[in-house]
Computed example of a mutant assay.
Amino acid sequence: MNLTELPYRTMAIVRGTDRDAALRAVLTLAEEGVTATEVSLTTPGALWVIEQARRELGPHVTLGAGTVLTCEDAVRAADAGASFLVTPGLGRDPGHGTWPELPVLMGALTPSEVITATERGALAVKLFPASLGGPGYLKALRDPFPTVPFVPVGGIDTASALAHLAAGAVAVGVGSPLVGDAASGGDLDALRERVARWRTALTEEIAA
């Protein structure tokens, strides 16, 4: 999983209240070119969503499970077809016990947590909540951690996505500003329109 090669340097975060709507949102995102998606395990039927999306989209789509809190969560997500895992914080060492051998984006905020995440073999540090410190905080972290790949998550809209990428993020994770209410039964045409606006803004900036 190469985060720098994600379309639009973006990982969509699907979190909703209806499993069928969440699946439709994942598939619509993929149709519109956002092929890296995290399905939060707080979504009812999230494992079913991952399993069905994997069947529909095939083995090469970057499809992960988010809000992974336990080894049991991780194993079930892997069995459902997740190709990566995302945690909101550090929790138990993923190298211990029955954690599957999948890339993990580990949630961290402080320098000490960043060190722990890298020691545990995180693919990247999910800087969460990114809205707490903003791009300036990421830039400050990049000074002592220049080689750590950071993926800011939490409060990321178009403007903050561009600012965090400019500050050195390898990618950004975005939920409601992109997905909206699509994962809870909202309008899929509105989702397509949001993706189109996001794609235009991010593509122009990355190409600049």
Rank of each mutant, 00 (worst) to 15 (best):
L165H: 09
A163V: 06
D157A: 14
L178M: 13
L141R: 02
H164A: 07
A169I: 10
G168H: 09
T147M: 11
A171K: 08
V170G: 05
P149C: 12
A166N: 14
G168D: 06
P152L: 13
T158Y: 00
A171G: 07
P177W: 07
G173S: 06
L162S: 00
V153E: 10
A171S: 14
V153Y: 04
H164M: 14
A166T: 15
L141A: 10
L162Y: 01
A171Q: 07
A163N: 00
F150K: 09
T158C: 12
G154S: 09
G168P: 07
A161N: 09
P144G: 04
L162C: 02
A169P: 00
F145L: 10
A159S: 14
T147E: 15
P149R: 12
F150V: 13
T158P: 00
L162D: 01
A159H: 13
G155M: 04
G175S: 14
D157L: 08
F150S: 05
V179N: 00
A163H: 05
T147V: 12
G175D: 02
H164L: 07
P146A: 08
D143E: 15
P146F: 02
P144W: 03
P144Q: 04
P149W: 14
F145M: 05
G173L: 13
P152Y: 12
T158D: 13
T158N: 04
H164Q: 02
V153C: 15
G155W: 08
D157N: 15
D157C: 10
A161M: 08
A161I: 11
P146M: 06
D143G: 12
P149E: 11
L162H: 00
A169S: 11
V174N: 00
V148S: 02
L178P: 05
F150M: 05
L162T: 11
I156D: 03
G173Q: 10
L178N: 06
F150H: 06
F145N: 05
A171N: 11
P146E: 05
A166E: 15
L162Q: 12
P146Q: 10
P144I: 08
V151I: 14
L165V: 12
G155C: 11
G154C: 09
V174L: 06
V172H: 03
G168E: 04
P149N: 08
A166W: 02
I156Q: 07
A161L: 10
A161T: 08
A169K: 12
T147Q: 14
I156A: 07
G155Y: 03
A167N: 09
V151Q: 10
G175I: 14
P144L: 05
V174Y: 03
T147N: 12
F145V: 02
L165T: 05
A167P: 11
A169Q: 06
A171M: 09
S176W: 06
T147Y: 11
A161Y: 05
A166M: 07
I156C: 06
L178D: 01
A159Y: 03
A166D: 15
G155D: 09
P144Y: 01
